[in-house]
Nucleic acid binder design. Structure first.
Length: 498
RNA sequence: GGGGUUGUAGGGUAGCUUGGUCUAUCCUUCGGCGUUCGGGACGCCGAGACCUGAGUUCAAAUCUCAGCAACCCCA
Protein backbone atom coordinates (compact mmCIF):
# COMPACT_ATOMS: atom_id res chain seq x y z
CA UNK A 1 0.00 0.00 0.00
CA UNK A 2 2.84 2.39 0.75
CA UNK A 3 4.98 1.10 -2.06
CA UNK A 4 3.57 3.57 -4.53
CA UNK A 5 3.77 6.66 -2.40
CA UNK A 6 7.46 7.22 -3.14
CA UNK A 7 7.34 6.68 -6.86
CA UNK A 8 4.34 8.90 -7.32
CA UNK A 9 5.86 11.89 -5.66
CA UNK A 10 6.54 14.56 -8.19
CA UNK A 11 9.67 16.63 -8.46
CA UNK A 12 9.79 19.03 -5.56
CA UNK A 13 8.88 22.60 -6.43
CA UNK A 14 11.88 23.93 -4.54
CA UNK A 15 14.37 21.60 -6.20
CA UNK A 16 13.42 22.11 -9.80
CA UNK A 17 10.65 24.57 -10.41
CA UNK A 18 10.72 24.20 -14.15
CA UNK A 19 10.17 20.47 -14.06
CA UNK A 20 7.61 20.76 -11.30
CA UNK A 21 5.68 23.27 -13.38
CA UNK A 22 5.38 21.10 -16.48
CA UNK A 23 4.61 18.07 -14.36
CA UNK A 24 1.73 19.90 -12.68
CA UNK A 25 0.30 21.16 -15.96
CA UNK A 26 0.21 17.61 -17.19
CA UNK A 27 -1.02 15.82 -14.08
CA UNK A 28 -3.61 18.38 -13.05
CA UNK A 29 -4.84 18.33 -16.63
CA UNK A 30 -4.35 22.01 -17.33
CA UNK A 31 -2.48 21.90 -20.63
CA UNK A 32 -1.48 19.14 -22.98
CA UNK A 33 1.95 20.02 -24.29
CA UNK A 34 2.05 17.30 -26.92
CA UNK A 35 0.79 19.36 -29.82
CA UNK A 36 3.30 19.10 -32.66
CA UNK A 37 3.88 22.81 -33.24
CA UNK A 38 6.46 24.73 -31.27
CA UNK A 39 5.09 27.03 -28.63
CA UNK A 40 1.42 26.17 -28.97
CA UNK A 41 -0.49 23.95 -26.58
CA UNK A 42 -3.89 22.41 -25.92
CA UNK A 43 -6.13 23.44 -23.03
CA UNK A 44 -7.60 20.38 -21.33
CA UNK A 45 -11.22 20.68 -20.18
CA UNK A 46 -10.16 21.18 -16.56
CA UNK A 47 -7.55 23.77 -17.44
CA UNK A 48 -10.01 25.56 -19.66
CA UNK A 49 -12.49 25.74 -16.79
CA UNK A 50 -9.85 27.39 -14.64
CA UNK A 51 -9.04 29.75 -17.49
CA UNK A 52 -12.67 30.67 -17.91
CA UNK A 53 -13.15 31.36 -14.22
CA UNK A 54 -10.05 33.57 -14.21
CA UNK A 55 -11.22 35.45 -17.29
CA UNK A 56 -14.73 35.61 -15.86
CA UNK A 57 -13.35 37.71 -13.02
CA UNK A 58 -11.45 39.86 -15.48
CA UNK A 59 -14.52 40.27 -17.68
CA UNK A 60 -16.75 41.33 -14.85
CA UNK A 61 -14.19 43.98 -13.86
CA UNK A 62 -13.81 45.16 -17.43
CA UNK A 63 -17.52 45.22 -18.18
CA UNK A 64 -18.12 47.98 -15.65
CA UNK A 65 -16.55 50.58 -17.88
CA UNK A 66 -15.60 48.86 -21.13
CA UNK A 67 -17.51 47.22 -23.91
CA UNK A 68 -16.38 43.91 -25.30
CA UNK A 69 -15.69 43.68 -29.03
CA UNK A 70 -14.10 41.26 -31.45
CA UNK A 71 -11.69 42.37 -34.13
CA UNK A 72 -10.24 40.23 -36.93
CA UNK A 73 -7.14 38.11 -36.55
CA UNK A 74 -5.72 39.21 -39.88
CA UNK A 75 -4.04 42.57 -40.34
CA UNK A 76 -2.99 43.84 -43.78
CA UNK A 77 0.72 44.50 -44.05
CA UNK A 78 0.42 48.20 -44.87
CA UNK A 79 -1.63 48.91 -41.75
CA UNK A 80 0.70 46.90 -39.55
CA UNK A 81 3.69 48.84 -40.85
CA UNK A 82 2.24 52.33 -40.40
CA UNK A 83 3.45 53.09 -36.92
CA UNK A 84 7.23 53.00 -37.15
CA UNK A 85 8.13 52.73 -33.49
CA UNK A 86 5.46 50.15 -32.97
CA UNK A 87 6.45 47.86 -35.81
CA UNK A 88 10.11 48.07 -34.85
CA UNK A 89 9.19 46.33 -31.65
CA UNK A 90 7.30 43.53 -33.32
CA UNK A 91 8.45 42.96 -36.88
CA UNK A 92 10.78 40.08 -36.08
CA UNK A 93 7.99 38.21 -34.37
CA UNK A 94 5.19 38.44 -36.90
CA UNK A 95 3.65 35.39 -38.52
CA UNK A 96 2.63 36.08 -42.12
CA UNK A 97 -0.09 34.68 -44.31
CA UNK A 98 1.21 35.06 -47.83
CA UNK A 99 -0.96 32.69 -49.81
CA UNK A 100 -4.63 32.00 -50.35
CA UNK A 101 -4.70 28.46 -51.57
CA UNK A 102 -1.93 28.46 -54.13
CA UNK A 103 -2.38 32.12 -55.04
CA UNK A 104 0.20 34.56 -53.75
CA UNK A 105 -1.59 37.42 -51.92
CA UNK A 106 -1.09 40.98 -53.20
CA UNK A 107 -0.93 42.29 -49.68
CA UNK A 108 0.41 39.81 -47.14
CA UNK A 109 -1.68 39.41 -44.01
CA UNK A 110 -0.19 39.36 -40.55
CA UNK A 111 -1.53 37.28 -37.70
CA UNK A 112 -2.00 39.96 -35.04
CA UNK A 113 0.89 40.13 -32.59
CA UNK A 114 -1.33 42.63 -30.75
CA UNK A 115 -4.25 44.59 -32.17
CA UNK A 116 -3.44 48.29 -32.20
CA UNK A 117 -3.06 48.34 -35.96
CA UNK A 118 -6.26 46.35 -36.45
CA UNK A 119 -8.34 48.48 -34.13
CA UNK A 120 -7.12 52.03 -34.67
CA UNK A 121 -8.06 52.34 -38.34
CA UNK A 122 -11.55 51.49 -37.19
CA UNK A 123 -11.33 54.01 -34.35
CA UNK A 124 -10.74 56.60 -37.04
CA UNK A 125 -14.13 55.74 -38.49
CA UNK A 126 -15.94 55.34 -35.21
CA UNK A 127 -14.78 58.51 -33.56
CA UNK A 128 -16.25 61.74 -34.92
CA UNK A 129 -17.18 63.98 -32.05
CA UNK A 130 -16.26 64.60 -28.43
CA UNK A 131 -19.52 62.87 -27.68
CA UNK A 132 -18.00 59.60 -28.86
CA UNK A 133 -15.38 59.92 -26.13
CA UNK A 134 -14.23 58.35 -24.00
CA UNK A 135 -14.28 55.19 -26.04
CA UNK A 136 -13.34 52.13 -24.04
CA UNK A 137 -13.30 48.68 -25.56
CA UNK A 138 -11.62 45.38 -24.94
CA UNK A 139 -11.39 41.95 -26.45
CA UNK A 140 -10.12 38.55 -25.35
CA UNK A 141 -8.42 36.89 -28.29
CA UNK A 142 -5.49 34.84 -29.47
CA UNK A 143 -2.40 36.59 -30.73
CA UNK A 144 0.66 35.22 -32.47
CA UNK A 145 4.33 35.91 -31.92
CA UNK A 146 7.15 34.08 -33.55
CA UNK A 147 9.16 33.62 -30.38
CA UNK A 148 12.70 32.55 -31.01
CA UNK A 149 13.61 32.06 -27.39
CA UNK A 150 12.70 28.99 -25.42
CA UNK A 151 8.93 28.67 -25.34
CA UNK A 152 7.12 27.66 -22.17
CA UNK A 153 3.47 26.67 -21.60
CA UNK A 154 1.31 29.67 -20.60
CA UNK A 155 4.41 31.82 -20.22
CA UNK A 156 6.21 32.24 -23.53
CA UNK A 157 3.98 31.20 -26.39
CA UNK A 158 3.81 31.48 -30.11
CA UNK A 159 0.05 31.51 -29.86
CA UNK A 160 -1.16 33.47 -26.88
CA UNK A 161 -4.64 32.03 -26.61
CA UNK A 162 -6.12 34.40 -24.07
CA UNK A 163 -4.93 37.94 -24.58
CA UNK A 164 -7.22 40.46 -22.94
CA UNK A 165 -6.42 43.77 -24.56
CA UNK A 166 -8.17 47.03 -23.80
CA UNK A 167 -7.99 50.12 -25.98
CA UNK A 168 -9.29 53.50 -24.98
CA UNK A 169 -9.52 56.91 -26.61
CA UNK A 170 -10.00 60.19 -24.76
CA UNK A 171 -10.42 63.86 -25.48
CA UNK A 172 -7.51 65.02 -23.38
CA UNK A 173 -4.22 63.78 -22.14
CA UNK A 174 -5.43 64.25 -18.59
CA UNK A 175 -8.36 61.95 -19.29
CA UNK A 176 -6.02 59.37 -20.75
CA UNK A 177 -3.75 59.58 -17.74
CA UNK A 178 -6.75 59.19 -15.51
CA UNK A 179 -7.60 56.03 -17.45
CA UNK A 180 -4.13 54.66 -16.80
CA UNK A 181 -4.76 55.05 -13.09
CA UNK A 182 -8.12 53.34 -13.39
CA UNK A 183 -6.53 50.48 -15.27
CA UNK A 184 -3.92 50.08 -12.54
CA UNK A 185 -6.68 49.91 -9.95
CA UNK A 186 -8.59 47.43 -12.06
CA UNK A 187 -5.59 45.15 -12.46
CA UNK A 188 -4.86 45.38 -8.75
CA UNK A 189 -8.34 44.20 -8.00
CA UNK A 190 -8.00 41.40 -10.54
CA UNK A 191 -4.75 40.02 -9.17
CA UNK A 192 -5.98 40.45 -5.62
CA UNK A 193 -8.89 38.19 -6.45
CA UNK A 194 -6.43 35.64 -7.82
CA UNK A 195 -4.42 35.97 -4.59
CA UNK A 196 -1.40 36.81 -6.74
CA UNK A 197 0.92 39.45 -5.25
CA UNK A 198 2.73 41.94 -7.47
CA UNK A 199 4.97 44.92 -7.73
CA UNK A 200 4.00 47.77 -10.00
CA UNK A 201 6.70 49.69 -11.79
CA UNK A 202 7.09 52.26 -14.49
CA UNK A 203 9.27 50.61 -17.09
CA UNK A 204 12.45 52.45 -18.06
CA UNK A 205 12.36 54.48 -21.26
CA UNK A 206 14.29 51.89 -23.22
CA UNK A 207 11.93 49.10 -22.29
CA UNK A 208 8.51 50.66 -22.83
CA UNK A 209 5.86 49.37 -25.20
CA UNK A 210 6.80 50.27 -28.79
CA UNK A 211 4.90 53.41 -29.63
CA UNK A 212 3.95 54.31 -26.07
CA UNK A 213 4.89 57.37 -24.05
CA UNK A 214 5.31 55.24 -20.99
CA UNK A 215 4.48 51.77 -19.75
CA UNK A 216 3.45 50.54 -16.34
CA UNK A 217 3.87 46.89 -15.55
CA UNK A 218 2.74 44.38 -12.98
CA UNK A 219 5.35 41.79 -12.11
CA UNK A 220 5.08 38.87 -9.75
CA UNK A 221 7.78 36.68 -8.27
CA UNK A 222 7.98 33.10 -9.42
CA UNK A 223 9.21 30.31 -7.13
CA UNK A 224 12.56 30.11 -8.93
CA UNK A 225 13.34 33.68 -7.96
CA UNK A 226 12.60 35.21 -11.33
CA UNK A 227 10.01 37.87 -11.88
CA UNK A 228 7.31 37.49 -14.48
CA UNK A 229 5.45 40.34 -16.13
CA UNK A 230 1.75 39.62 -15.74
CA UNK A 231 0.12 42.84 -16.86
CA UNK A 232 1.00 46.05 -18.67
CA UNK A 233 -0.63 49.43 -19.09
CA UNK A 234 0.48 51.98 -21.64
CA UNK A 235 -0.13 55.64 -22.17
CA UNK A 236 -0.06 56.07 -25.92
CA UNK A 237 -0.77 59.76 -26.00
CA UNK A 238 -1.32 61.04 -29.53
CA UNK A 239 1.26 58.94 -31.33
CA UNK A 240 -1.11 56.37 -32.77
CA UNK A 241 -3.81 59.00 -33.27
CA UNK A 242 -1.44 60.93 -35.51
CA UNK A 243 -0.40 57.81 -37.39
CA UNK A 244 -3.92 56.56 -37.93
CA UNK A 245 -5.46 60.03 -38.10
CA UNK A 246 -7.94 59.56 -35.28
CA UNK A 247 -9.56 62.95 -34.66
CA UNK A 248 -12.67 64.25 -33.00
CA UNK A 249 -14.50 67.53 -33.22
CA UNK A 250 -14.44 69.34 -29.89
CA UNK A 251 -17.12 71.59 -28.38
CA UNK A 252 -15.75 74.54 -30.32
CA UNK A 253 -15.92 72.77 -33.61
CA UNK A 254 -12.20 72.28 -34.11
CA UNK A 255 -10.57 68.95 -34.85
CA UNK A 256 -8.32 67.39 -32.23
CA UNK A 257 -6.31 64.21 -32.02
CA UNK A 258 -7.51 61.71 -29.43
CA UNK A 259 -5.35 60.61 -26.53
CA UNK A 260 -5.10 56.87 -26.13
CA UNK A 261 -4.20 54.13 -23.73
CA UNK A 262 -4.03 50.40 -24.06
CA UNK A 263 -3.46 47.65 -21.53
CA UNK A 264 -3.24 43.90 -21.61
CA UNK A 265 -3.17 40.67 -19.67
CA UNK A 266 -2.42 37.21 -21.05
CA UNK A 267 -2.71 33.65 -19.76
CA UNK A 268 0.43 34.34 -17.80
CA UNK A 269 -2.05 35.27 -15.10
CA UNK A 270 -3.12 31.62 -15.02
CA UNK A 271 0.52 30.56 -14.91
CA UNK A 272 1.13 32.81 -11.93
CA UNK A 273 -1.76 31.30 -9.99
CA UNK A 274 -0.45 27.81 -10.63
CA UNK A 275 3.18 28.63 -9.92
CA UNK A 276 2.68 30.71 -6.82
CA UNK A 277 0.14 28.66 -4.91
CA UNK A 278 0.92 25.11 -6.00
CA UNK A 279 2.87 22.74 -3.76
CA UNK A 280 4.45 19.29 -3.89
CA UNK A 281 1.03 17.63 -3.93
CA UNK A 282 -0.14 19.60 -6.93
CA UNK A 283 -2.26 22.60 -7.63
CA UNK A 284 -3.65 24.81 -4.89
CA UNK A 285 -6.38 26.87 -6.46
CA UNK A 286 -7.79 29.98 -4.87
CA UNK A 287 -11.51 29.29 -4.29
CA UNK A 288 -12.37 32.19 -6.62
CA UNK A 289 -11.09 30.25 -9.62
CA UNK A 290 -11.45 26.62 -8.56
CA UNK A 291 -13.78 24.76 -10.96
CA UNK A 292 -14.61 22.53 -8.03
CA UNK A 293 -14.50 24.39 -4.73
CA UNK A 294 -15.59 21.49 -2.58
CA UNK A 295 -15.20 17.81 -3.31
CA UNK A 296 -17.30 15.42 -1.29
CA UNK A 297 -15.83 11.98 -0.73
CA UNK A 298 -18.14 9.28 0.55
CA UNK A 299 -16.47 6.64 2.70
CA UNK A 300 -18.34 3.45 1.96
CA UNK A 301 -17.57 -0.19 2.56
CA UNK A 302 -19.63 -1.64 -0.18
CA UNK A 303 -21.89 -0.42 -2.86
CA UNK A 304 -24.19 -3.33 -2.27
CA UNK A 305 -27.29 -2.33 -0.43
CA UNK A 306 -27.77 -3.81 2.98
CA UNK A 307 -24.13 -4.14 3.93
CA UNK A 308 -23.35 -1.99 6.88
CA UNK A 309 -20.45 -0.74 8.89
CA UNK A 310 -20.82 0.56 12.41
CA UNK A 311 -24.48 -0.10 11.86
CA UNK A 312 -24.62 2.49 9.09
CA UNK A 313 -25.50 1.40 5.63
CA UNK A 314 -23.48 2.63 2.68
CA UNK A 315 -26.64 3.84 1.08
CA UNK A 316 -27.19 6.34 3.83
CA UNK A 317 -23.63 7.60 3.46
CA UNK A 318 -24.26 8.24 -0.19
CA UNK A 319 -27.55 9.90 0.56
CA UNK A 320 -25.87 12.18 3.07
CA UNK A 321 -23.27 13.15 0.48
CA UNK A 322 -25.89 14.03 -2.07
CA UNK A 323 -27.80 16.02 0.52
CA UNK A 324 -24.68 18.05 1.32
CA UNK A 325 -24.03 18.51 -2.38
CA UNK A 326 -27.55 19.81 -2.93
CA UNK A 327 -27.24 22.30 -0.12
CA UNK A 328 -23.91 23.60 -1.39
CA UNK A 329 -25.11 23.74 -4.94
CA UNK A 330 -28.11 25.76 -3.90
CA UNK A 331 -25.85 28.13 -1.99
CA UNK A 332 -23.94 28.79 -5.20
CA UNK A 333 -20.88 26.79 -4.25
CA UNK A 334 -19.22 24.67 -6.92
CA UNK A 335 -19.31 21.18 -5.41
CA UNK A 336 -18.77 17.67 -6.65
CA UNK A 337 -19.46 14.23 -5.20
CA UNK A 338 -16.75 11.74 -6.11
CA UNK A 339 -18.77 8.57 -6.51
CA UNK A 340 -16.13 6.72 -8.44
CA UNK A 341 -15.05 3.21 -7.55
CA UNK A 342 -11.61 4.24 -6.36
CA UNK A 343 -10.59 3.87 -2.78
CA UNK A 344 -10.77 7.04 -0.70
CA UNK A 345 -6.99 7.50 -0.62
CA UNK A 346 -6.77 7.55 -4.40
CA UNK A 347 -9.48 10.18 -4.49
CA UNK A 348 -7.66 12.35 -1.98
CA UNK A 349 -4.53 12.36 -4.09
CA UNK A 350 -6.41 13.07 -7.28
CA UNK A 351 -8.30 16.08 -5.96
CA UNK A 352 -5.25 17.40 -4.19
CA UNK A 353 -3.41 17.34 -7.49
CA UNK A 354 -6.28 19.26 -9.06
CA UNK A 355 -6.12 21.87 -6.35
CA UNK A 356 -9.65 21.58 -4.96
CA UNK A 357 -9.57 23.95 -1.97
CA UNK A 358 -11.77 21.95 0.38
CA UNK A 359 -12.56 18.26 0.78
CA UNK A 360 -15.51 17.00 2.78
CA UNK A 361 -15.41 13.39 3.92
CA UNK A 362 -18.54 11.64 5.05
CA UNK A 363 -18.40 8.09 6.40
CA UNK A 364 -20.30 5.83 8.79
CA UNK A 365 -18.25 7.10 11.72
CA UNK A 366 -19.23 10.71 10.95
CA UNK A 367 -22.82 9.92 10.24
CA UNK A 368 -23.29 8.34 13.64
CA UNK A 369 -22.42 11.65 15.22
CA UNK A 370 -24.14 13.73 12.55
CA UNK A 371 -20.84 15.20 11.46
CA UNK A 372 -18.66 15.43 8.44
CA UNK A 373 -14.97 16.17 8.15
CA UNK A 374 -13.39 19.15 6.42
CA UNK A 375 -9.85 18.93 5.08
CA UNK A 376 -8.25 22.08 3.73
CA UNK A 377 -6.05 21.75 0.68
CA UNK A 378 -3.70 24.55 1.61
CA UNK A 379 -2.70 23.41 5.09
CA UNK A 380 -4.21 19.88 5.35
CA UNK A 381 -5.99 20.86 8.59
CA UNK A 382 -8.86 18.55 9.49
CA UNK A 383 -11.97 19.67 11.36
CA UNK A 384 -15.26 18.06 12.32
CA UNK A 385 -18.34 19.99 11.31
CA UNK A 386 -21.98 19.25 12.21
CA UNK A 387 -23.95 18.39 9.10
CA UNK A 388 -26.40 21.15 9.95
CA UNK A 389 -23.69 23.82 9.66
CA UNK A 390 -22.11 22.73 6.43
CA UNK A 391 -23.02 25.67 4.21
CA UNK A 392 -21.95 28.51 6.50
CA UNK A 393 -18.85 26.59 7.52
CA UNK A 394 -17.88 25.95 3.90
CA UNK A 395 -18.27 29.63 3.10
CA UNK A 396 -16.17 30.61 6.08
CA UNK A 397 -13.50 28.06 5.27
CA UNK A 398 -13.25 29.02 1.60
CA UNK A 399 -12.84 32.65 2.56
CA UNK A 400 -10.20 31.62 5.04
CA UNK A 401 -8.29 29.69 2.41
CA UNK A 402 -8.49 32.55 -0.05
CA UNK A 403 -7.14 34.98 2.52
CA UNK A 404 -4.47 32.68 3.88
CA UNK A 405 -2.90 31.75 0.58
CA UNK A 406 -2.94 35.38 -0.47
CA UNK A 407 -1.19 36.43 2.72
CA UNK A 408 1.35 33.65 2.40
CA UNK A 409 2.13 34.67 -1.16
CA UNK A 410 2.49 38.32 -0.21
CA UNK A 411 4.85 37.40 2.57
CA UNK A 412 7.00 35.38 0.20
CA UNK A 413 7.19 38.29 -2.19
CA UNK A 414 8.06 40.77 0.56
CA UNK A 415 10.65 38.49 2.05
CA UNK A 416 12.40 38.40 -1.30
CA UNK A 417 12.54 42.11 -2.00
CA UNK A 418 15.94 43.26 -0.92
CA UNK A 419 16.36 46.96 -0.38
CA UNK A 420 19.90 48.12 -0.91
CA UNK A 421 20.69 51.16 1.22
CA UNK A 422 22.17 54.18 -0.42
CA UNK A 423 25.17 54.34 1.86
CA UNK A 424 25.64 50.61 1.68
CA UNK A 425 28.41 50.12 -0.86
CA UNK A 426 27.64 46.52 -1.39
CA UNK A 427 29.75 44.50 -3.75
CA UNK A 428 28.12 43.72 -7.09
CA UNK A 429 28.75 40.05 -6.42
CA UNK A 430 26.61 40.20 -3.32
CA UNK A 431 23.81 42.05 -5.07
CA UNK A 432 23.93 39.49 -7.79
CA UNK A 433 23.39 36.80 -5.17
CA UNK A 434 20.42 38.70 -3.77
CA UNK A 435 18.95 38.92 -7.25
CA UNK A 436 19.25 35.16 -7.59
CA UNK A 437 16.12 34.65 -5.54
CA UNK A 438 14.22 37.87 -5.67
CA UNK A 439 13.91 41.54 -6.40
CA UNK A 440 16.56 44.09 -5.51
CA UNK A 441 15.67 47.70 -4.95
CA UNK A 442 18.58 50.03 -5.61
CA UNK A 443 19.48 53.50 -6.82
CA UNK A 444 19.90 53.88 -10.54
CA UNK A 445 19.71 56.95 -12.75
CA UNK A 446 17.51 57.22 -15.83
CA UNK A 447 20.20 56.85 -18.45
CA UNK A 448 20.02 53.80 -20.64
CA UNK A 449 23.79 53.31 -20.52
CA UNK A 450 23.71 52.90 -16.77
CA UNK A 451 20.72 50.59 -17.02
CA UNK A 452 22.42 48.34 -19.55
CA UNK A 453 25.63 48.38 -17.58
CA UNK A 454 23.84 47.29 -14.42
CA UNK A 455 21.85 44.63 -16.27
CA UNK A 456 25.08 43.18 -17.62
CA UNK A 457 26.90 43.28 -14.32
CA UNK A 458 24.12 41.74 -12.28
CA UNK A 459 22.55 39.52 -14.90
CA UNK A 460 19.19 41.15 -14.28
CA UNK A 461 16.54 43.25 -15.98
CA UNK A 462 15.58 46.67 -14.75
CA UNK A 463 11.88 46.52 -13.93
CA UNK A 464 11.64 50.21 -13.23
CA UNK A 465 10.63 52.68 -10.55
CA UNK A 466 8.11 51.44 -8.07
CA UNK A 467 4.68 52.93 -8.58
CA UNK A 468 2.40 52.96 -5.57
CA UNK A 469 2.50 49.30 -4.65
CA UNK A 470 2.36 49.37 -0.94
CA UNK A 471 1.95 52.43 1.20
CA UNK A 472 5.57 52.37 2.22
CA UNK A 473 6.78 52.44 -1.36
CA UNK A 474 4.48 55.23 -2.30
CA UNK A 475 5.97 57.45 0.32
CA UNK A 476 9.50 56.47 -0.51
CA UNK A 477 10.70 59.50 -2.38
CA UNK A 478 14.26 58.96 -1.29
CA UNK A 479 17.14 59.81 -3.54
CA UNK A 480 20.60 58.37 -3.68
CA UNK A 481 23.57 57.86 -5.93
CA UNK A 482 23.31 55.83 -9.11
CA UNK A 483 25.03 52.47 -8.63
CA UNK A 484 26.89 52.98 -11.86
CA UNK A 485 27.63 56.67 -12.41
CA UNK A 486 27.03 58.11 -8.93
CA UNK A 487 24.73 60.83 -10.19
CA UNK A 488 21.53 61.62 -8.40
CA UNK A 489 19.13 58.70 -8.77
CA UNK A 490 15.86 57.25 -7.59
CA UNK A 491 15.09 53.71 -6.53
CA UNK A 492 14.37 51.09 -9.14
CA UNK A 493 13.54 47.44 -8.89
CA UNK A 494 15.77 44.98 -10.67
CA UNK A 495 15.43 41.20 -10.95
CA UNK A 496 16.11 38.28 -13.16
CA UNK A 497 13.04 38.24 -15.34
CA UNK A 498 11.19 35.67 -17.41
C1' G B 1 21.34 34.04 -33.13
C1' G B 2 25.38 29.80 -32.45
C1' G B 3 26.48 24.81 -30.74
C1' G B 4 25.12 20.02 -28.87
C1' U B 5 21.87 15.85 -27.53
C1' U B 6 17.49 13.24 -28.44
C1' G B 7 12.82 11.26 -30.90
C1' U B 8 10.33 3.44 -29.79
C1' A B 9 2.55 2.21 -26.81
C1' G B 10 -0.71 7.40 -22.63
C1' G B 11 4.21 7.77 -19.53
C1' G B 12 9.31 5.64 -18.52
C1' U B 13 13.09 2.37 -20.68
C1' A B 14 15.97 -1.52 -23.66
C1' G B 15 17.30 -2.77 -28.55
C1' C B 16 20.86 0.96 -32.89
C1' U B 17 27.79 0.62 -32.34
C1' U B 18 28.08 -4.50 -36.11
C1' G B 19 20.93 -3.77 -40.80
C1' G B 20 18.05 -9.92 -40.95
C1' U B 21 14.15 -15.06 -37.93
C1' C B 22 12.95 -7.28 -33.77
C1' U B 23 10.65 -6.64 -31.06
C1' A B 24 10.80 -6.52 -25.64
C1' U B 25 10.10 -4.68 -20.66
C1' C B 26 8.21 -1.67 -16.58
C1' C B 27 4.41 1.74 -14.87
C1' U B 28 1.54 6.19 -11.69
C1' U B 29 -1.68 4.23 -19.13
C1' C B 30 -6.38 2.17 -21.03
C1' G B 31 -10.41 -1.77 -21.09
C1' G B 32 -13.00 -6.33 -18.91
C1' C B 33 -14.10 -9.61 -14.67
C1' G B 34 -13.69 -10.63 -9.50
C1' U B 35 -12.22 -9.64 -4.46
C1' U B 36 -11.58 -4.92 -1.87
C1' C B 37 -12.74 0.19 0.29
C1' G B 38 -11.37 6.06 6.88
C1' G B 39 -4.61 8.27 2.74
C1' G B 40 -2.40 6.12 -3.92
C1' A B 41 -5.59 -2.01 -2.99
C1' C B 42 -4.88 -6.75 -5.33
C1' G B 43 -5.45 -10.94 -8.77
C1' C B 44 -6.42 -12.72 -13.63
C1' C B 45 -7.33 -11.60 -18.80
C1' G B 46 -6.72 -8.13 -22.60
C1' A B 47 -5.23 -3.36 -25.45
C1' G B 48 -1.55 -0.16 -27.13
C1' A B 49 4.55 2.14 -30.24
C1' C B 50 9.47 2.11 -33.67
C1' C B 51 8.43 11.13 -35.30
C1' U B 52 7.57 12.40 -40.87
C1' G B 53 9.59 12.08 -45.75
C1' A B 54 13.28 10.72 -49.14
C1' G B 55 17.59 7.70 -49.97
C1' U B 56 20.98 3.28 -49.56
C1' U B 57 19.76 -2.13 -49.52
C1' C B 58 17.43 -8.44 -51.32
C1' A B 59 16.25 -6.44 -46.30
C1' A B 60 15.88 -0.30 -42.07
C1' A B 61 13.61 0.96 -35.22
C1' U B 62 18.95 0.36 -36.58
C1' C B 63 22.83 3.53 -41.81
C1' U B 64 22.56 8.63 -44.76
C1' C B 65 20.07 13.29 -45.81
C1' A B 66 16.10 16.67 -45.05
C1' G B 67 11.92 18.27 -42.27
C1' C B 68 9.28 18.64 -37.73
C1' A B 69 9.44 18.41 -32.44
C1' A B 70 11.69 18.22 -27.57
C1' C B 71 15.73 19.01 -24.20
C1' C B 72 20.58 21.18 -22.75
C1' C B 73 24.61 24.79 -23.17
C1' C B 74 26.45 29.53 -24.96
C1' A B 75 25.23 34.63 -26.78
Amino acid sequence: MQRKAETQTIVRKKDNFSEWYSEILKRAKILDIRYPVKGVYVWYPYGYKVRNLVYGILRSLMDKEHEEVLFPLLIPKDELMKEKEHIKGFEDEVFWVTKGGSTELDIPLALRPTSETAIYPVFKVWIRSHRDLPLRIYQIVNTFRYETRHTRPLIRLREITSFKEAHTAHATRADAEEQVKKAVALYKSFFDQLAVPYVITRRPEWDKFPGAEYSIAFDTLMPDGRTMQIGTIHLLGESFARTFDIKYEDENGSLQFVNQTCYGISERCVASVIAIHGDDHGLVLPPTVAPIQVVIVPIVFSRKAGISNNGVESVSVEKACVAVYDELNEAGIRAFVDNSEDRPGAKYYRWEMKGVPLRIEIGPRDLKSNNCEFVRRDNTKRTHVPLSDVVPEVKRTLEGIQGDIHEAAKETLHANIYKNKSEDKMEMEELRRKAEHGIVSLFLCDRERCGQELEDQLGVSVLGKAVAVYEAEEKDKSEGECMICSRKAKRVYVARAY
